[in-house]
Structures are given as structure tokens and as C-alpha cells.
Simulated scan of single mutants.
Amino acid sequence: MVLACMALASALPLSVQAQGVYRIVGPDGRVSFSDRPPVDGAKKSSELKSAEADSGNASSSNSNAQLPYQLRETAKRYPVTLYAAKDCSPCDEARNHLQNRGIPFAERSIETASDVDALKKLSGQDGLPFATVGNQHLKGFNADSWNQYLSAAGYPAQPQLPAQYKAPAPRPLTTPVVQPKAGKPETANGQTTRPAAAPSVTPPGTPTADNPAGLRF
């Protein structure tokens, strides 16, 4: 399996890298976010659009309980998830960047074909690294761009992780399906059922109780 590891500098428009993240309140009161400044001159906000935590972030809840209050609340509202693979240098750079900045994050590993398919459905492509901050997608790694979104979400610029903090272990994106072994006896009601024995066939000419001489007709 070949996974593409792409740099964000080539994946994002220059305007996204150069500008900030803006909070826009519409006439109906609904809030949206954009990389372009609003026409009414609304000021830049440090908030990003919130999203529901995915199943991978659920496993990091115990780890996040160790965090300082403000950092814990930010991680709860805008959880960070990194999608990475082995032998992917940009993935290693992205992981190291999050760790060095003190970002609590969950990691999902892309190892199998089913993982790749799930990643395509989630991100629209199979390039790595890929990350989410809330429901904001970060495709490819660029330190400046990632810092921009992390800061907009409210994550501190300097590490605040406690010394005893232990990051959750990476988990595969999909659950492997275990195929049953061929020839294994089936079980029913806790008892092993064996295949029925084939009926015995007496070769022609064999003496039997009804035909002691084994005569053939």
C-alpha cells in the first residue's frame, strides 16, 4: 500500500496561509468561519467551528482529565486528531510539532486498505498527514498554518501539559475483521459439532451376514 505524504504548502491556497481565521455572524445570528475577512469588518476571533468528538477522541478523555482547566475545555470543544502512517516523514514532523507545542491529541493510524478507504470518506483524499481541529480539516503539514488554526481554536502557544500527562496510544482508523479459520468445527450451544460421517459402502464381492460367500450377481 502506497500512501501519499504531501506538503500543505502545495495543497493550500496562498491566501489561506497568509490570512487568519475569521468569525462571521450573519443577519440571522448564525455563526460561520472563513479564511477571508468579512465585508462588514468584523474582527478576527479566536474561535473555530465546533464539532462532535469522533470515536478516537473518546479514548483520550481519561488523559484529558489530567489537563489544566482551560486547556481541558479547549480540547473538549475542539479536539485534535492526527491521521498518520508508518514511514511517513511529514507525519513524523506533524506529530513532533503537536507534541512540542503541548497539544493533547488522539492519533489514528492508517495501515490497511480499509483504513485508506475510511480516510478518503473522511477527508476526500488519501494524502497524509491529515488532522482535524474540531471539524476543521488540515491536509498536509505546514507548521505556520497549523499554528494558526490551533491558536484560533484557543490552544496556548506554549506547552501547558502536566508532567504526568500520558498521551493515548495510536489506534487504527478501522477495526480489522477476523476471518474464521478454514476447517474449524462449528459450535452450537457451547458444544462442538463435528461433520457427519460418510455412510459406509460395502465393496462388491465382500462376504456379509446375508451373503457369506460374497456371491455377485
Rank of each mutant, 00 (worst) to 15 (best):
F141V: 11
C91H: 06
P79I: 05
K49F: 06
P90I: 08
A163M: 06
A7H: 13
Q136I: 11
K181Q: 10
G154N: 02
S55K: 13
V31D: 01
P159K: 01
Q191H: 07
A58I: 13
S10Q: 14
G41K: 00
C5F: 15
S114H: 09
S50D: 09
N135S: 12
R77F: 06
G190I: 06
N142V: 09
D92P: 02
N64I: 07
T193I: 10
G41Q: 03
V177W: 04
P170G: 09
G56N: 15
E93R: 15
G20E: 11
D35H: 06
D115T: 10
L3M: 08
P38Y: 00
D28T: 00
C88F: 09
G214T: 14
E107H: 02
D210Y: 04
R23N: 00
A53R: 07
A75K: 13
D117V: 08
G205A: 07
T187H: 09
Y155S: 02
F105Y: 14
P199F: 07
H137W: 13
S145G: 03
T132Q: 12
A131I: 04
A197D: 06
M1P: 13
C91E: 09
P199H: 12
A143S: 12
L48W: 01
S89I: 14
K181G: 05
S109D: 07
T174I: 08
R194C: 01
E52C: 06
N142C: 13
N189F: 06
Y149I: 09
V201H: 12
I103C: 08
V201Q: 15
A196H: 05
T208Y: 13
K86E: 15
P203G: 09
N189T: 04
P176G: 11
P129D: 06
P212N: 01
F217N: 07
P203D: 08
N142Y: 13
T208R: 12
T74A: 03
Q17S: 06
W146P: 05
K121R: 07
P172K: 14
N211H: 02
A167I: 04
P170W: 06
H97N: 08
A163F: 07
Q160V: 09
H97D: 05
L82T: 10
A197H: 07
R72E: 05
A198P: 04
Q66M: 01
F33Q: 05
F130I: 09
A9H: 14
L8R: 15
A169E: 15
S15K: 08
R171P: 06
E107A: 01
Y149T: 07
S60F: 12
P156G: 01
I24F: 02
E107M: 10
S123P: 11
P168E: 03
L71Y: 01
A188E: 05
A153T: 07
L71H: 02
L3N: 03
A131S: 15
N147D: 06
P129L: 09
P199C: 12
A7R: 15
T112F: 13
Q191F: 10
A51V: 11
M6G: 14
L119V: 05
G124P: 02
N64D: 13
L71R: 01
P180R: 00
N135M: 10
Y22V: 01
A18N: 10
I103S: 03
V178E: 11
